[in-house]
């Protein structure tokens, strides 16, 4: 299992559009993924789950990824959080 923390760069936080993109990205991997923000946890395959966490800009979230392709998945999320989420 890999755990990795990311800071949400989008000032508006985890809005529906980036959250949708994240769910779509997660679906491309076999690994099981969880998103943690403080006390709250959601599976990364649930848009409703992610949105209802109310993640704000500047907050740090943690991903937990476990599965055969977890290395690839983390690399993909590195790119996603570094670039993608900034532009929304």
């Amino acid at each position: 299992m890999i755990k990795k923390a990311y800071t949400i760069l989008a000032p508006e936080g985890m809005h529906a559009r980036p959250a949708t993109a994240m769910v779509k990205l997660a679906r491309q991997f076999k690994a099981v993924m969880f998103l943690k923000n403080g006390e709250k946890t959601s599976r990364l395959n649930s848009l409703i789950g992610i949105l209802s966490m109310g993640i704000k800009g500047g907050e740090t979230i943690e991903l937990e990824i476990e599965g055969v392709d977890e290395g690839d998945a983390v690399a993909a999320f590195d790119v996603f959080f570094a670039n993608h989420l900034k532009d929304w």
Partner: peptide, 16 residues
Amino acid sequence: AEILGIQVELLLDPQM
């Protein structure tokens, strides 16, 4: 299309 894309994800949501 983006608005609709969000709705597709909501429909496919495993929690739902």
